[in-house]
């Protein structure tokens, strides 16, 4: 599983791409994000409460 979603607002975190604005380099695992970090869009959901993205099967990721 590499793609995760905020269950409140739908923000997506893809471990392969990371999130450069948030300062997470490509390849950064969800479990490696800071414990006090919350979803950048709604602000209320910590990373540990993110859910697997429903259509999160990234074909590029499967090839690797």
């Amino acid at each position: 599983m590499t793609r995760w979603r905020c269950p409140e607002c739908g923000y997506r975190y893809d471990e392969i791409a990371g999130d450069l604005h948030e300062g997470f380099a490509p390849g950064m695992k969800l479990c490696g994000l800071p414990t006090d970090w919350t979803c950048p869009d709604c602000g209320i959901i910590p990373a540990r409460e993110f859910v697997p993205d429903a259509d999160g099967r990234n074909p590029e990721a499967d090839k690797r």
């Binding site: 006090d36 919350t38 950048p40 869009d41 709604c42 602000g43 209320i44």
Partner: peptide, 9 residues
Amino acid sequence: IEHVRGHHR
């Protein structure tokens, strides 16, 4: 930043 990332959290 204060509001969305701080206050809401």
